[in-house]
Every structure is written in C-alpha cells, then in structure tokens.
C-alpha cells in the first residue's frame, strides 16, 4: 500500500475515512454493551427455568463471554484507530508543509539547493510516516477479520440458543423471545461490521 508522495487532499480524505470508521466502531461498541446486559438477563432467566433450561444457560454464559470478548476487541480497534488518527493528522501537517515548500522551490531560485535538500528530508519523513500508516492499516484489517470470526461464532451461539429455548418447558416462550433478540442484535452487529470492513478496505489514500 505504501505509495510515494501523498497529497494534502489524499491525507484529508484518509482523515475523513478514519473519522467515519471511528463512528462505526462507536455503534458496534454500544450494541456489544447491549448484548452483554441481555446475556446477563438470559443467565438469570435460565436459572429460574432450572433443569429445563440447562442447555440454554450454558449458551447464555457463552454469549456473555462473546459480548465481553467483542467489547475488548472493539476497544483494541478503537485504540488502533486513535493511533491512525494521530498518524494521519501528522501526515496531513507534513503534506501541507511540503506543498508550501514546493511553492518556495519555484519562487526562491537563490535558495534552491537548500530547499531541494529540505524537500528530500521531508520526502524521507513522509515515506516513513506512510509506512507506519500502512502497518497500522494492516493491523486494522487483521483485527477486523478476527472480530468478523468472533461475530460468526456469536451468530452460531444465538441460533443454538433458539433451538435450546424450545426445550424450556413453561419458560420456552420467554427463552425463545430472548434468543430471538440475541439473533437480531447479532445481525445488527454483523451489518455494522460489514459497513466497517467496507470503510476500512477502501483504498487507503482514496
């Protein structure tokens, strides 16, 4: 992904993209928090249902564990995006300075040699920053893959919970309602994650 000579517009575009990703992360984190509370309620409900809801109880615990792991992963993602925001802001500042220095190069014929040396130094700094951004970008992609797999597991757990709910005796209807809510909310997380992956996989300097 490393590319020589990022422009101010490209860096500004990247900044806007990261802000968008950050907003999408906030949406997933808020949903993950909701699922955590739902899993706690499901655990209490299955305890009340007793013997008839043993399988559902196990799955509720798994779903709660899933919500905790998802929250942790999203926190990690948020920290990565915060690092990327810092990096791209720095990149934007350097790209602006470079654009001004390029104007100097065309206006200050007498100082051309020293300006050329400065432009080379700026190029080295920008290349380094762009490489660092590439590393962050790759880590972001890997983390989103991990989160995607985790959400798939969450979907399997929610569907299994629905099946277990049918064996819940007098609590079957209540357990079915809870497991349907799980399934729906994991669907919401999945579509938020799809949007997040789409934003993330856009051309870095587009």
């Amino acid at each position: 992904m490393a590319r020589s000579g990022i422009t101010q517009d490209e860096a500004a575009g990247q900044l806007r993209r990261l802000v968008q990703i950050n907003e999408q992360i906030k949406a997933v984190v808020s949903t993950a928090f909701k699922i955590n509370l739902m899993a706690l309620n499901a655990i209490f409900l299955s305890k009340r249902a007793g013997q008839a809801a043993l399988g559902f109880g196990v799955l509720s615990n798994e779903l709660r564990q899933f919500a905790v792991e998802l929250t942790e992963k999203m926190a990690e993602l948020r920290s990565l995006v915060a690092g990327s925001l810092r990096g791209v802001t720095d990149l934007l500042k350097h790209a602006r300075n470079r654009a001004i220095m390029e104007r100097v190069d065309s206006e200050a014929a007498a100082a051309r040699a020293s300006i050329q040396a400065l432009l080379v130094r700026q190029r080295v700094t920008l290349d380094r920053q762009e490489s660092e951004m590439d590393v962050l970008h790759r880590r972001l992609g890997l983390l989103l893959d991990e989160i995607g797999q985790l959400v798939e597991l969450g979907g399997v757990l929610a569907r299994s919970a629905k099946i277990e709910a049918a064996y819940g005796g007098s609590f079957a209807a209540a357990l079915m309602q809870v497991s349907t809510d799980f399934d729906q909310i994991i669907g919401v997380i999945r579509s938020s994650l799809d949007a997040l992956e789409k934003s993330e996989s856009q051309e870095v300097y587009a």
Binding site: I100, A108, A110
Partner: peptide, 19 residues
Amino acid sequence: GLEVFPAVFGAISSEVDPS
C-alpha cells in the same frame, strides 16, 4: 503567516542566504 511564507522566503533568499 503560513500563507505568505513562500513570498517571504523567496524575497529573503534574493538578498541573504536564509540559512
């Protein structure tokens, strides 16, 4: 200011080595 830097730098360098 930032915006006039090229004009200032160019004018200075016509008379004095900015370094």
